[in-house]
C-alpha cells in the first residue's frame, strides 16, 4: 500500500514548510518507508527550490525521488494555512508528500501518484479531503476515488 492510516496526519501544527516536510518525513520513516530522513528532506527541499510544489487551490505536493526512500509512499496531512510560495499566492492547507526511490521497480505506484495528481485538480476531491475528519475517512475517500489504491 502506498498510503495507510499511519501515513495520514490531520493535525500538523508546524507553521513552516521546512518543519512540515521534516515532520512528515519522520512519519514515513517510522513506517519503514525512508532509510535516511535527512537525505530525503534535502532532496525534497532541493526540488522545492527549483520552483514551489504548491500548485494552487491550497494544495502542496512536496516530493523527492531519492534512494533514501526504501519503498514508495504517500503522506497526507492537513496543516494550518501555511505560506508555501504557491503559484496562485494562496496559503496551503492540504499537503501530499511523495517519496519514490531513484530506481523504482514497477510503475504501479507511479501511476497511482499520477492519478492522485490529476484528481487534486478537481474541486470535489479537494472538498472531500477537507471535509474528512479522521484518517479512516481519508482512506475511504482515496479508495473510492478510482485511484488504484
Amino acid at each position: 500500500m502506498i498510503i495507510n492510516e499511519k501515513l495520514i496526519n490531520l493535525q500538523v501544527n508546524d507553521r513552516t514548510k521546512e518543519a512540515i516536510i521534516q515532520e512528515l518525513a519522520k512519519m514515513a520513516c517510522e513506517e519503514g518507508r525512508i532509510g535516511d530522513v535527512d537525505a530525503y528532506v534535502k532532496a525534497v527541499l532541493k526540488r522545492e527550490d527549483e520552483y514551489s510544489t504548491a500548485v494552487g487551490f491550497g494544495v502542496a505536493i512536496p516530493h523527492g525521488k531519492t534512494n533514501a526512500v526504501k519503498e514508495p509512499f504517500l503522506v497526507f496531512a492537513k496543516v494550518q494555512s501555511v505560506e508555501w510560495n504557491a503559484l496562485d499566492g494562496e496559503p496551503v492547507d492540504l499537503v501530499f508528500m511523495i517519496g519514490v526511490p531513484e530506481e523504482s521497480a514497477g510503475s504501479l505506484h507511479l501511476k497511482i501518484l499520477a492519478s492522485i495528481s490529476r484528481k487534486l485538480m478537481k474541486e470535489e476531491f479537494r472538498e472531500g479531503l477537507r471535509q474528512s475528519k479522521t484518517p479512516e475517512e481519508i482512506m475511504k475517500l482515496l479508495k473510492s476515488s478510482d485511484l488504484g489504491i
Binding site: 510544489t53 511523495i98 501518484l113 499520477a114 495528481s117
Partner: peptide
C-alpha cells in the same frame, strides 16, 4: 516536469479541464 511525478499530470488535468 523534472521528477515526472506530479506536475506533469496536474498540468495535463488543468489543460484538459
Amino acid at each position: 516536469c523534472p521528477t515526472g511525478i506530479a506536475h506533469t499530470y496536474m498540468a495535463a488535468e488543468a489543460l484538459e479541464a
